[in-house]
Design a protein around this nucleic acid. Structure first.
Length: 553
RNA sequence: UGGCCUAUGGUGUAACUGGCAACACGUCUGAUUUUGGUUCAGAAGAGUCUAGGUUCGAGCCCUAGUAGGCCAACCA
């Protein structure tokens, strides 16, 4: 019997091999954000990877803040990062760690390296060292301070810690190899002086470990079995391993994978920050932002994001993922979950001339054809209703290509009756002002005698019961597919139509009780989410994504 | 320029690690449909960057080349 086992990605293959060969009994991974900004879709990929792997193999995934640069890090980011991970549905239980928790240990390890003659205090200013450091093609030359005695190094390093020196006056360097073709092995900095308060340790320290000094050691302290990071850290791996070896500590293993690139999207903290600060978007949680909070507000669901992460997989080659994959993931999820309702973006009044002026009939509407448990609701039908302006054409093409309204054309009003357009009124500017129609009493939804078949079905809203709503139509933020290939300023590629606000839309009365966060499908239009700006008497919907549209041919 | 990494339909990933390339998205057909949605059935589309080599046999191994990515921050 063949079971179609889903194929494994290269990391899963490595893990299963490690497990089989007894190198590890379980998986301990970690998600290590630096609390200096907000999480985005790229982080989501990493979160799903790290937590997902731990889940799959019955292991654990820690949350560890990589907070070794007090100049950039803040507590507010810590909170938002935790919120985002929780929203995605992952739980780090009590394993919330901080690299700064390990500062004491890290300091001891630094002195251990000094004692082994593997680290030294260097007085050379940054630019001076960089000058003698050489280039990838040309070896560097040693700093004049490279051969200081262990005692002197130990003394100087302790003086650094005590605050005897100014920022930048001295650094602690690993003593490795000035001629290595890997620049990270040319006596990399382990500790630097920063008289800056840290968001967690306050003013306890004025020297801080660098990423290289802190990251692998933190992994080791937490007994991380598989330390996953993005490709650009590949060149750090020899240093990662050098430190573990020379410190003789638990050998966590670093494995790199390709970061996410999304079409029509920019995913870098720097660029996203610029968009916010220059006001191109309304904050980090603007629904157009690829930040987790932005996507949440837009209407993406955790399930969709996880499904997305799952489908794109993980590999070691840099590519460009089509946003269509993300959009497909939300549609798939929302199709099952979102109730259908009627909303008219650009209302066009239709007067049903043979319907009594004061009559209201309550009709039954199905909430979600994909989910019978979602039940039904009642919607009022009256003489005057709204359909969308886009659903009428004065001179429509043949009925085979145009299923909607036109002079003498018939359509079904969903859950109601079939109507025939008997006339229309034009405004002076040529626009269509209102439509006149006649309904066929024998075509009531559910009780249709079946003598009539129409191809088109329209959504509608009773004019007397309609609720006004603001609809925010979001579209991609950029017009260029591959934003990582552009050479000019990325802001030149902004999509001027990434947000179109429709302030005079009408929606069906059942939406009166809509709450922030509710997600619906406006039939034939797309999926929408009630925005946090929404109030009791001013409903605001964000368009998450349009419906798939096959009307090309 | 020195080194490291990568190279499979339009896009993202597979190929039990040598046995004539699969899945998803997208595209196109048709059916169903009281959403031009969903669902269903089907199609087109790569011979695996190039050139050698090893082998009975290579997308998987070797060599060279080409292309792309990464590295010369007291950022992570």
């Amino acid at each position: 019997m063949e079971e179609n086992k889903k194929s494994l990605n290269f990391i899963e293959q490595m893990i299963e091999k490690d497990l089989e060969e007894g190198r590890h009994k379980t998986v301990v991974s970690r998600f290590p954000p630096e609390p200096n900004g907000y999480l985005h879709i790229g982080h989501a990929k990493s979160i799903c990877l790290n937590f997902g792997l731990a889940e799959k193999y019955g292991g654990k995934c820690n949350l560890r803040f990589d907070d070794t640069d007090p100049e950039k890090e803040e507590t507010k980011y810590v909170e938002s990062i935790k919120d985002n991970i929780r929203w995605l549905g992952f739980d780090w239980e009590d394993r919330e760690y901080y690299a700064s928790d390990y500062f004491d240990q890290l300091y001891i390890w630094a002195t251990d390296l000094i004692k082994k003659g593997k680290a030294y205090v260097d007085d050379l200013p940054a630019d001076a060292f960089n000058k003698i450091k050489g280039t990838p093609a040309r070896p560097g030359t040693p700093s004049p301070y490279r051969e200081r005695s262990v005692e002197e190094n130990l003394y100087l390093f302790s003086r650094m810690k005590e605050g005897a020196f100014e920022d930048g006056e001295k650094v602690l360097r690993a003593k490795i190899d000035l001629s290595s073709p890997n620049m990270h092995m040319r006596d990399p900095i382990l500790y630097r002086i920063k008289h800056t308060a840290h968001h967690r340790t306050g003013s306890k320290w004025c020297i801080y470990p660098t990423y290289d000094m802190a990251h692998g050691q933190s992994d080791s302290i937490e007994s991380i079995t598989h330390s996953l990071c993005t490709l650009e850290f590949e060149v750090h791996r020899p240093l990662y391993e050098w430190l573990i070896e020379n410190l003789e500590i638990y050998p966590s293993k670093q494995t790199e994978f390709a970061r996410l690139n999304l079409s029509y999207t920019v995913v870098s903290k720097r660029s996203l920050r610029e968009l916010v600060e220059l006001g191109h978007v309304n904050g980090w949680d603007d629904p157009r932002m690829p930040t987790i909070s932005g996507m949440k507000r837009r209407g993406f669901t955790p399930e969709a994001v996880k499904k997305f992460a799952d489908t794109i997989g993980v590999a070691r080659r840099n590519g460009l993922t089509d946003v269509a994959v993300l959009e497909h993931a939300v549609r798939e999820d929302l199709n099952k979950k979102a109730n259908r309702v009627f909303g008219i973006m650009n209302p066009l009044k239709v007067i049903i001339t043979n319907w009594p002026e004061d009559k209201t009939e309550m009709l039954t509407a199905i909430n979600n054809p994909e989910d019978p448990a979602a039940g039904t609701r009642k919607i009022p039908f009256t003489q005057e209703i709204y359909v969308d302006q886009g659903d009428f054409m004065e001179n429509p093409p043949s009925p085979g290509k145009w299923f909607r309204l036109g002079p003498d054309r018939e359509v079904r009003l969903k859950f109601a009756y079939i109507i025939k357009c008997t006339g229309y009124k034009k405004a002076e500017d040529g626009s269509i002002e209102e439509l006149y129609a006649e309904y066929d009493p024998e075509t009531k939804s559910g009780q249709d005698t079946g003598r009539k078949k129409v191809k088109g079905t329209l959504g509608w809203v009773s004019a007397s019961y309609a609720i006004n709503a603001e609809i925010r139509m979001y579209d991609r933020l950029f017009t260029t597919e591959n934003m990582s290939a552009i050479k000019d300023d990325f802001k030149n590629h902004l999509n001027p139509d990434s947000l179109k606000i429709i302030s005079n839309a009408v929606v069906e009365p059942s939406l009166k009780k809509a709450k922030v966060g509710d997600q619906v499908q406006f039939e034939r239009i797309g999926y929408f989410r009630v925005d946090e700006d929404s109030t009791q008497d001013h409903l605001i919907f964000n368009r998450t994504v349009t419906l798939r549209d096959n009307r090309n041919k």
